[in-house]
């Protein structure tokens, strides 16, 4: 067992997932199974190997800082579950 139910709860909190108790148990079982299957990676000698995050040899793609057309406000808000006076409305934060 790589992880415990406490780890599942912590990761669920970080992931912003309000899991049910049954879901926690299932996630625990499956995540441990998957993490066990990854053990094999420890057999690979990666000393001196650079991590490869991205296969293309391109970095820092920039453009001129010029004004471009943006979406009109009504289009930006058209999918909002709740809006008020041109803003996204959410439950109380503080």
């Amino acid at each position: 067992m790589k992880i415990s139910i406490k780890d599942v709860e912590y990761v669920a909190l970080l992931s912003r997932l309000e899991l049910t108790d049954e879901e926690k148990v299932e996630q625990l079982r499956e995540l441990n199974k998957i993490l066990d299957s990854m053990e094999v990676l420890n057999k690979v000698d990666t000393s001196g190997v650079e991590p490869l995050a991205h296969v293309l040899p391109i970095h820092n793609v920039l453009r001129e800082d010029e004004l471009r057309a943006t979406l009109p406000k009504e289009k930006v808000l058209q999918n909002a579950p709740e809006e008020d006076e041109g803003m996204f409305k959410v439950p109380k934060i503080v």
Binding site: S15, R16, L17, T20, E26, Q27, E30, K92, I93
Partner: peptide, 25 residues
């Protein structure tokens, strides 16, 4: 009734089991 539980409940209701598994992993 608060923002964190709105995030967490929305995500738990909206995502299927495999998506949640990969997010957790």
């Amino acid at each position: 009734d608060d923002i964190i539980s709105m995030f967490s409940r929305t995500r738990n209701q909206g995502f299927g089991i495999e998506v949640k598994r990969r997010i957790m992993l």
